[in-house]
Design a protein around this nucleic acid. Structure first.
Length: 1105
RNA sequence: GCUCGAGUGGCGGAAUUGGUAGACGCGCUGGAUUCAAAAUCCAGUAUUUUCGGAUGUGCGGGUUCAAGUCCCGCCUCGAGUACCA
């Protein structure tokens, strides 16, 4: 009886569907196991042979677990919102919902014919409103949350409001926007509702903010960082530009550290974890402030006007002056000596002693240079904190530089003290110091930089700002203005892509401004250069040319100094970027220290003068969540006076409106701007016509403009709705929870279902989702965990990346300038142009069906062909499978020609799951023959024939060897080797003429996960009337494998020469004796005496000599 | 540039803690069957050879009784990332 796979497969696919064989129960005494494939997007092209690879692997595992007695959840569904359907809609006018539905039908039919054990009763589609209502719901929860750093978790916004009400925001440790200003409880309570909303928006986990985004004009939408590859859009490959827009953002940065920490324990491929780690990009260092020496608007003292020396706080100036006079009368010893020296030494600058500044009296002050000198007695050691506060006020707020000496320093080495003062004065050289008449605001200006090498702070010889840096315009001197603006214009014109491609060219411009080194007080020129990225850190760097190659190159190029601060390191050729291997030199108090201590000391010193602090910086940016697109989830948001309001949960879903066209409006609004029924009636809680909105406006009630530009009114409670939609990753960031309880209308997943299924035990998919879907899913899961909505911190316990199946493109060669194609063997020396030919025209010997090719496209109809040996031979190239390369192979043909079981086994047989491999149908006959051979084991010619007799010991040994190997292989996801094992097993059983039930029954179960249709058929023929699906997996018994002897390999100097069968119970000495006695040994030794004989019982014998 | 991963016959790929390199399949060669083909079955298939053997897992060293496997230094290919301060 021959193996009619088509009939068998159709029969069992029907059986599984009718009997709901793979339906998982949410209540079960069995242990659970959750196997999931990465969410497919139903594209119009259907499946090619590469897609099912992961599905087959996960299906084998799911089926294996069912045999092992697990309650298995193995669902499937569609990530059905997305760009391709919308692009198609723009071109053809067909509603994306129809396109999507058609594509899903095709997908489903293709999936079904491969025999997957999916529980289709739980199917979800992100574009269905009963699904996306919960996506909208989660969005609302994010809006209703803030990140509490104190407890390191998301909290309800109501808690934050309670804190603001009671104590303002000064003690709140939250992740928030950078521009949040401090307020007290009184101030908070005095704020209007709108002011409060604006402030809260700065704290919410999803927030509306004007951000610089990646705008793709071709796609008409913004893209997230992970949707851009090499500076162009991942989808379509269109250029991307930076643009400022008001957008919804997700505060994923709040979770950066937890995403990093928790990834360590995940059973994921290391490269995938690495790429998440890199993407998050944690770096430890310091934030350092450099004051700007103001030279942009030199304001010489107006003629005839005295500088203002009354710098004390006017409200208490009388009291201050009185106390100052008292103090001048009784200086400390140190103060007295210093005053004498300062008077004696003509320092070009006038000093005043015991001078009131703000609410303090300082020891000595040079007002023209804004330098303060303090001489500390013992008392200061005990009031460091107060001094810090005083210094903060003087230094940060008023812009004075404070030099501090101890009494002891002054007494011991007054010359050194004077020298330091002199140096500092010189660094604040004439004309560039703060004039006494300058205003407070000027003093506030500083450049913040982030550095991972605070230990090299004394190696700074210039600073570089990104051309886009907000301070550039302010600080640039009039002389440099023209050059700087020209440079900014030039670099703005260069696209992201150009800038990335052209790393070699060094460019920049001097701003004319100087900053002050916070520790040495030296004057440092400030440059701009586009090697500094506006988007990373603070958009500015302290340039340490001796320790950073980019700074080094920049310094060399512009002839800037390159001070060496590394002991014994030659920096004449290149920078020394290593942290270890040397000590810091020429660096004041850091000299002689190694990287670690120097870093520590430098941060301490910076903190002491309030010019810096230790900081951890992340590369991970908050994720932009708005898309100017039609085919996505609508935001459950309407605007009152431009402020976003959430639609109450009970009124969800907010359904996607109909539009007549899927393009942006003439005003440049997103496609939803075309919807005519897209306003929110906040009294009736429903969507109403935009007419209502206009009517209200005509009534003359208050008008306002939303960020999207739609006019609205608060008069009758009718407001404009958000016009953006959510990005593709919204629906896919939580779908794995929905499968647990797919039909629940009360909640996104019931607590009971979620606690039973927990999270995904095994997740299989491509590595391309490393920094998108997988990171966002982890973020949302952590958020839901924080808010007590799920019980797990991570979505996917174990993850496997299946390798890509590559296509074998077929190339034909057209002679340049002619319509003549030349066979591959003859192209040598000819100028030819390779063209992709459809792989369906190629036979197994790489020969082209010339006639089929000619009728493929009109331009080839009258082409000429130069053949070799009467054939046209094509070239083959391994490339990604893609429609545009005509190398796509569909699983459909394979299924009809060889059957799904053959396809499943062949895809596994190709090689390790994780590895990329080219698709080549050549080997498929071997797998197909194997199945036929197995079928024959159960049949005698045309009849099913299984014997009830006892199987031979040899057969039992074969079976149990197979059980052992296959079980180990499945557990290690080594499916290719288990297919080989099955082949060996069937070969052996065939040779043994084995046909016993004792053996063939367990064999059917063993192979069922791989080739389920044939297994079911044989199972039913064996007399079972229920599915093989839950048949108990055979247990391996070692007793069948016990051997009495071993065929020892006998090697000489490590080379195997012959084998020798010896009893296993033989000891070391006996083995040696037996081997030495063998004549082949003597022949090998050729009379020599062996130096040594190594005997490993049960393994090997090695004779040295 | 940096970070990973991989280099084994004509091809896809096997090889437990270091212990018989090339399992299994494809392809190829020869044979059986057939009028013939397909299908099926059998035998062979790393290289080289003076038929004893010798050489072989990208290259060069090393450790070891023994190395595809461990260590050091290179080369090539692939993936990811990219001026990240």
């Amino acid at each position: 009886m021959s193996y009619h796979f088509n009939e068998i497969e159709a029969k069992w696919q029907k059986y599984w569907a009718e009997n709901q064989t793979f339906k998982a129960k949410n209540k079960s005494d069995l242990p659970k196991f959750y196997v999931l494939d990465m969410f497919p997007y139903p594209s119009g092209a259907g499946l090619h042979v590469g897609h099912p690879l992961g599905y087959i692997a996960s299906d084998i595992y799911a089926r294996f677990k069912r045999h092992k007695g697990f309650n298995v959840l193995h669902p499937q569904g569609y990530d059905s919102f997305g760009l391709p359907a919308e692009q198609y809609a723009i071109q053809t006018g067909q509603h994306p919902a129809i396109t999507t539905e058609d594509n899903i039908k095709r997908y489903r039919q293709q999936l079904d014919q491969i025999g997957f054990s999916f529980d289709w009763s739980r199917e979800v589609r992100t574009s269905e409103s009963d699904y996306y209502r919960w996506t909208q719901w989660i969005f609302i929860q994010l809006f209703d949350s803030w990140y509490d750093k104190e407890n390191d978790k998301a909290q309800p916004i109501s808690i934050l409001e309670t804190i603001f009400f009671a104590e303002g925001n000064t003690n709140v440790n939250a992740v928030c926007d950078e521009d949040v200003e401090a307020f007290s409880a009184d101030e908070w309570n005095a704020f209007s509702s709108e002011e409060k909303q604006k402030i809260l928006l700065k704290y919410r986990l999803t927030y509306l903010a004007e951000t610089e985004v990646n705008w793709c004009p071709e796609l008409g939408t913004v893209l997230a960082n992970d949707e851009i590859v090499n500076g162009v859009s991942e989808r379509g490959g269109f250029p991307v530009v930076r643009k400022k827009m008001t957008q919804w953002s997700m505060r994923i940065s709040a979770y950066a550290q937890r995403l990093l920490d928790d990834s360590e324990a995940l059973d994921w491929p290391q490269p995938l974890k690495d790429s998440q780690t890199n993407w998050i990009g944690r770096s430890k260092g310091a934030l350092v402030k450099f004051q700007i020496l103001n030279s942009s608007h030199p304001q010489p003292f107006p003629e005839g006007r005295e500088p203002r020396y009354l710098t004390g706080d006017p409200q208490i100036s009388g009291e201050l002056l009185h106390r100052a006079k008292e103090m001048r009368k009784k200086p400390t010893e140190g103060e007295a000596i210093l005053w004498q020296k300062l008077k004696a030494k003509k320092l070009d600058s006038k000093f005043r002693r015991q001078h009131p500044i703000d609410s303090y009296i300082v020891d000595f002050a040079c007002l023209s240079k804004k330098l303060i000198i303090e001489v500390d007695g013992e008392i200061h050691l005990q009031q460091k904190e107060k001094d810090g506060e005083r210094e903060l006020q003087l230094n940060q707020k008023l812009g004075y530089r404070v030099l501090r000496f101890t009494n002891q320093e002054v007494l011991e080495d007054i010359n050194e003290v004077i020298n330091k003062i002199e140096n500092t004065l010189n660094s604040l050289s004439i004309g560039e110091g703060w004039g006494e008449n300058e205003t407070k605001t000027d003093n506030k200006k500083h450049i913040s930089v982030f550095t991972t090498r605070p230990d090299t702070i004394f190696g700074v010889s210039f600073m570089t700002l990104a051309p886009e840096h907000e301070l550039v315009q302010e600080i640039t001197t009039s002389e440099q203005k023209e050059a700087v603006n020209a440079y900014i214009a030039k670099s703005a014109k260069r696209s992201e892509r150009e800038r990335m491609a052209d790393v070699k060219t060094i460019s920049g411009e001097f701003t004319g401004a100087y900053a002050i080194h916070p520790l040495s007080g030296e004057k440092i020129p400030v440059w701009i250069g586009d090697y500094v990225l506006a988007g990373y850190g603070t958009g500015a760097v302290m340039s340490v040319p001796c320790g950073d190659q980019r700074d080094y190159d920049f310094a060399k190029h512009f002839g800037l100094p390159i001070p060496n601060i590394f002991e014994g390191i030659d920096i004449s050729e290149e920078a020394y970027a290593e942290k270890d291997g040397t000590k810091i030199a020429n660096s004041d108090f850091l000299t002689g220290l190694a990287y670690k201590e120097a870093t520590q000391k430098a941060i301490e010193a910076l903190e002491a003068v309030n010019a810096g602090k230790g900081k951890i910086n992340y590369r991970l940016r908050d994720a932009v969540f708005s898309r100017q697109r039609y085919w996505g989830e609508p935001f459950p948001v309407y605007y009152v006076n431009g402020l976003p309001q959430m639609i109450a949960e009970e009124h969800l879903p907010l359904k996607l409106p109909e539009v007549e066209k899927y393009l942006p409006t003439e005003e440049g609004e997103p496609p939803l701007g075309r919807a005519t029924t897209w306003a929110w009636d906040s009294n009736k809680n429903k969507i109403v016509s935009n007419e209502m909105l206009k009517q209200v406006q005509h009534d003359g009630t208050q008008n306002d403009v939303t960020p999207s530009g739609v006019e609205g009114s608060s008069g009758k409670g009718i407001y404009p709705l958000e016009l953006n939609t959510m990005p593709g990753w919204a629906g896919s960031s939580w779908y794995f929870f929905r499968y647990m309880d797919a039909d629940n209308e009360e909640i996104f997943v019931s607590e009971e279902a979620q606690k039973y299924w927990e999270n995904v035990d095994l997740y299989i998919g491509g590595s391309e989702h490393a920094t998108g879907h997988l990171l966002y899913s982890r973020f949302w899961t952590k958020f839901l965990y924080d808010r007590g909505m799920v019980s797990v911190k991570e979505p996917f316990k174990k993850l496997i990346n299946q390798g890509m199946i590559l296509g074998m493109s077929a190339m034909v060669y057209r002679i340049e300038g002619e319509n003549t194609f030349i066979s591959k063997g003859l192209i040598e020396g000819k100028s030819v142009q390779p063209i992709h030919a459809d792989v369906s025209f190629i036979n197994s010997s790489d020969e082209l069906d010339v006639e089929a090719f000619k009728s493929w496209r009109p331009e080839f109809a009258d082409a000429k062909f130069i053949l070799e040996n009467g054939k046209y031979v094509v070239g083959r190239e391994v490339e990604k499978m893609s429609k545009s390369k005509y190398n796509v192979v569909s699983p459909d043909e394979i299924c009809s020609q060889y059957g799904a079981d053959t396809l499943r086994m062949y895809e596994m047989f190709l090689g390790p799951l994780e590895q990329a491999k080219p698709w080549n149908t050549a080997g498929i006959t071997g797998v197909h023959n194997f199945l036929k051979k197995m079928w024959k084991l159960y049949h005698n010619d045309e009849v099913f024939a299984v014997s009830e007799e006892k199987a031979s010991a040899d057969s039992m040994k074969t079976l149990h060897k197979t059980i052992k190997k296959v079980t180990e292989d499945i557990e290690e996801f080594s499916f290719n080797t288990s297919v080989s094992t099955f082949m060996i097993c069937v070969n052996e059983l065939t040779a043994q003429k084995c046909n016993q039930r004792e053996l063939l029954e367990p064999l059917a179960i063993l192979i069922a996960p791989y080739a389920p249709h044939i297994a079911e058929e044989l199972w039913s023929k064996l007399g079972h009337d229920s599915s093989i699906t839950t048949a108990e997996y055979p247990v391996y018994k070692e007793s069948y494998l016990v051997e009495s002897s071993k065929d020892y390999p006998i090697s000489f100097n490590g080379k195997m020469r012959f084998t020798m069968e010896l009893p296993l119970e033989m000891g070391r000495d006996e083995i040696e004796k037996a081997v030495m006695a063998d004549e082949r040994t003597q022949k090998q030794l050729d009379g020599r005496a062996p130096k040594k004989v190594i005997v490993v019982p049960g393994k090997i014998v090695n004779i040295v000599g």
